[in-house]
Design a binder for these strands. Sequence first.
DNA 1: ATGATAGTTAGCAATATGACTAAGCATCAT
DNA 2: ATGATGCTTAGTCATATTGCTAACTATCAT
Lengths: 113, 113
Amino acid sequence: MTKHHPELSLLFHALADPTRRSILTRLAGQPARVTDLSEPTGLRLPTVMRHLSVLEAAGLIATVKDGRVRTCAIVPDALEPARTWLDEQRSIWEARLDRLEALAMQAMKERTE
Amino acid sequence: MTKHHPELSLLFHALADPTRRSILTRLAGQPARVTDLSEPTGLRLPTVMRHLSVLEAAGLIATVKDGRVRTCAIVPDALEPARTWLDEQRSIWEARLDRLEALAMQAMKERTE
DNA sequence: ATGATAGTTAGCAATATGACTAAGCATCAT
DNA sequence: ATGATGCTTAGTCATATTGCTAACTATCAT
């Protein structure tokens, strides 16, 4: 157990920044050039580039350069590992709750005997 | 749009660290003392404390001190905001895919005319 | 060929992160 | 009352993050 999941770390880290999340939601609407992403955020181009490379390293976006224009788009399935992990945890955490409940019922039962 | 979600940032940031994820899965099994969490990770107590305070700030765990022992436990619903955000994104991203698909079909249709 | 446009690279500054040691404080057991 | 135990605080260190400016490269339009 306790596996290393560098992929998950990259993903969650990428999602932890509000600027990057807003870039993602922007790209969810439609692909965009780097400059298009710079304007609404009010950030300079190099700063946006940094965020894009973090997103790309996490597999959340893909980019292609055509002439001097780089176009960025979301990678639809990229969120799956995060979702999967959250779901796994939820089921484990719920199982724990069920056990607690069972213990509580056992305790009540014993008290009435 | 483009709301600030400090809560989400804290959550994702907390989940981005493998040590913290392993602490969470450890706690999912059963509550534990700080020392119990220190041993398997091989980290010193102050380091574990730091991670615990990050987890607590994100609302992922709750701790109580009884005598000199602090007991840590997961907060079952704490992952919900993350799950909700991921689900929202997925539905938006999928809607975008549907639109792309519609466009592609339109293009094919026009080509055959 | 010149200038404007789009992106990139390099480097800086402030702050945050993640680990540690050393020392302190508050119990608990004897 | 004393020592061991469990946590806490303070302070250090190395590295990473997030923003910037300035200077560079590559393309496109004229």
